[in-house]
C-alpha cells in the first residue's frame, strides 16, 4: 500500500493536494477526557463519504511513556474521548482525523484537488487517513512543567520548588505547606509556581545543547513575544516570562467606568 498515492487533507496544509478544503479540528482536553470538534470546510467529496458512513471521524490517543495507544471512531462531529488516569503518565497526545472506515471510492469534484492529481477518482483502502490533524498535548505547558506535592514539614504558607532530574523531560517539583495544599489547583498558586520554576530554569540543564524540548518551546514563545529569555541574565524576568505563558486571570471582573 503506497503511502504517497492518495490525496490527504492535513490540518497544517503542508501538502497541497486539496485546493480549498480545510480540516480544522478543535480539541478541548481535560485530565481524563477530551472533546474533539471535527470541522471540514469546502470538501464536499469528503463530506459525502461521511454521510454514507464509509468514512468516520477518528481520534488517536497516544501516551509514549506508558506505551498506551488507542484509536476511537465516531460518525458525530463532536467526539468525546476518555482515558483512565492510571493508563497515562506524562504527556498524552490527541491526534484527530477522518479515516476510511471501509474500502471506498473517493470521487472528487472538478477543481477540488490540485492540478498535480491527474485523476478525480481514487480507490481507497480501509484505514487511509483522508484528513489528519496535528498532534496536541492534553496538558498545558505549565502543567507539563510542574508537579505539586504536599510537604507537611514546610511552615504554613510556604512553597518550595526543585528541578526534577529523574526524567529527561524538564520538570519541577512544587512543594506546598499543609495549609495551602488544598489550593494547589488554584490558578494563582499555579502561576506563582511557574514563576518560581522559570526563575530556576537555567539550573535545570547543563547547557543550551542539553536544552530539553519544553525549554525550547518556552524560549520560542518568549522570543515570539519579544520577551527576554534566560540567556540575557540582566533583562530576564521570570515573572514576566511565566505570565506571558500562563497569565493570571482576574477573579473579579473590573468595574465599568460608566
Amino acid at each position: 500500500m503506497s503511502h504517497a498515492s492518495l490525496p490527504i487533507l492535513l490540518e497544517d496544509r503542508s501538502r497541497f493536494d486539496w485546493m480549498r478544503a480545510k480540516y480544522e479540528p478543535v480539541v478541548r482536553a481535560g485530565p481524563t477526557s477530551a472533546i474533539v470538534t471535527h470541522c471540514l470546510r469546502a470538501a464536499p467529496s469528503l463530506e459525502s463519504l461521511l454521510k454514507d458512513g464509509s468514512a468516520k471521524w477518528a481520534t488517536e490517543l497516544r501516551c509514549p511513556k506508558t506505551l498506551f495507544c488507542r484509536v476511537d471512531e465516531t460518525s458525530e462531529s463532536d467526539q468525546r474521548v476518555e482515558w483512565a488516569p492510571e493508563d497515562v503518565d506524562g504527556d498524552l497526545f490527541v491526534i484527530p482525523g477522518l479515516v476510511a472506515a471501509s474500502d471506498l471510492t473517493l470521487q472528487t469534484d472538478v477543481g477540488e484537488l490540485s492540478p498535480v492529481w491527474p485523476n478525480d477518482s481514487f480507490s481507497v483502502r480501509r484505514g487511509w487517513w483522508l484528513a489528519r490533524g496535528l498532534a496536541r498535548r492534553t496538558r498545558t505547558l505549565g502543567q507539563s512543567l510542574l508537579k505539586f506535592h504536599e510537604d507537611r514539614k514546610l511552615p504554613n504558607g510556604q512553597m518550595r520548588i526543585q528541578p526534577d532530574s529523574s526524567t529527561e523531560n524538564l520538570r519541577f517539583h512544587v512543594q506546598l505547606a499543609r495549609d495551602i495544599w488544598p489550593e494547589h489547583t488554584n490558578r494563582h498558586v499555579q502561576v506563582a509556581a511557574l514563576i518560581g520554576a522559570l526563575a530556576r530554569l537555567k539550573d535545570a540543564f547543563a547547557s543550551e545543547e542539553d536544552e530539553p524540548a519544553v525549554a525550547h518551546e518556552i524560549r520560542r514563545r518568549l522570543e515570539a513575544a519579544g520577551i527576554p529569555t534566560w540567556d540575557d541574565t540582566d533583562a530576564y524576568d521570570p515573572a514576566r516570562a511565566a505570565t506571558a505563558i500562563e497569565p493570571f486571570r482576574p477573579s473579579v471582573k473590573p468595574e465599568s467606568n460608566g
Binding site: M1, L6, I8, E60, G127, W128
Partner: peptide, 20 residues
C-alpha cells in the same frame, strides 16, 4: 511507521500490517 504515516493502524487490514 511508514504505513502509519498515512493510515490508521487501528483500521487497516491485518494483511496490510503483515505486508508492512
Amino acid at each position: 511507521a511508514r504505513l502509519g504515516l498515512r493510515n490508521s493502524l487501528g483500521h487497516v487490514d491485518r494483511s496490510a500490517l503483515t505486508d508492512a
